[in-house]
């Protein structure tokens, strides 16, 4: 076992290094004093932890505003997607109905639809709807593009909750609503939470649509705001960019690391058959 573990870690080590490398870069650059950014020859060492970088960055990059925008878009789009997905997933896992097969096919196809291919049409549609440059355009599109994933995940988890629990509740005297609220939902909450968090992360990280729909910097979400600090600038304040990147990614990375085993289980359960 020990020999095997060492061997496996040895094989995995190049990959592990390459994965962790950007985190090191982020960390070192974010804390480094500005003067040491362009030392020659380049080096990892630096003289002090300059916490002030973060405070400066917060003001200069308008980080708080972008953070609020990101939160608004991610929370609302996730809530919307969940409200629409939960009944749909329940119907898929519990009922037979005409067109079920066609509906599942449609879901699979929308899961494959990429925003980039439709981005021009989406932009024109939002212009028509008068939603361009509003965060709500992102709420709607993120919810729509996330729904296929959330419905699949929820459906595969719902199917693991035995139907006879609800039947037992009916026989015990519960109506459909009561059995949903008191038997089904308490059992489905963990699955719904996990699914919602993945939906949230997807929205949090989205780039193309946010870049396209939002025209003024007041509405930028974090990825676009950080990108705008880099794109087409003569002088890039890398220590600010890295500090912002670190603040934007670290919480998500931690939550994701904690939840990734649920994703594997979801896959095993049939999100990908």
């Amino acid at each position: 076992m020990l020999k095997k573990s060492l061997l496996f870690w040895l094989i995995l080590s190049p990959l592990v290094v390459v994965i962790l490398f950007p985190f090191g870069v982020m960390f070192v650059t974010a804390f480094r004093p500005r003067e040491e950014l362009f030392t020659y020859p380049p080096t990892w060492t630096f003289s002090e932890f300059r916490w002030a970088n973060f405070a400066e960055m917060w003001v200069k990059t308008n980080f708080g505003r972008a953070l609020l925008n990101s939160l608004y878009v991610s929370v609302l789009s996730t809530v919307l997607a969940m409200i629409l997905s939960i009944p749909a997933a329940y119907a898929l896992s519990r009922y037979r109905f005409p067109g079920k097969r066609a509906y599942r096919t449609f879901l699979l196809m929308t899961q494959m639809m990429s925003p980039i291919v439709l981005v021009l049409g989406l932009f024109r549609m939002m212009v028509t709807l008068g939603l361009v440059n509003t965060l709500n355009s992102l709420v709607l599109t993120y919810a729509a593009f996330n729904m296929a994933f959330t419905i699949w995940m929820l459906q595969s988890y719902f199917s693991t909750i035995p139907r006879d629990l609800e039947e037992a509740a009916w026989i015990d005297g519960a109506g459909h609503l009561t059995s949903l609220l008191r038997v089904f939902l308490p059992l489905a909450v963990p699955a719904m939470a996990v699914t919602a968090i993945f939906g949230f992360i997807n929205s949090w990280n989205e780039f193309v649509l946010a870049l396209t729909m939002i025209r003024s910097s007041d509405g930028f979400t974090l990825p676009v705001q950080i990108y705008s600090q880099v794109a087409g600038r003569y002088q890039i304040e890398w220590h600010h960019v890295m500090a912002a990147t670190m603040l934007a990614t670290l919480p998500v990375a931690i939550v994701f690391s904690w939840l990734q085993r649920f994703l594997i289980r979801g896959m095993a359960l049939g999100a990908v058959k």
Binding site: P162, D164, L165, E167, A168, A169, W170, I171, D172, G173, A174, G175, V183
Partner: peptide
Amino acid sequence: ARERDIAMVFQNYALY
């Protein structure tokens, strides 16, 4: 089912 005044024991027990 809830208005039939019956009780049922399920194969897999269906305990909550």
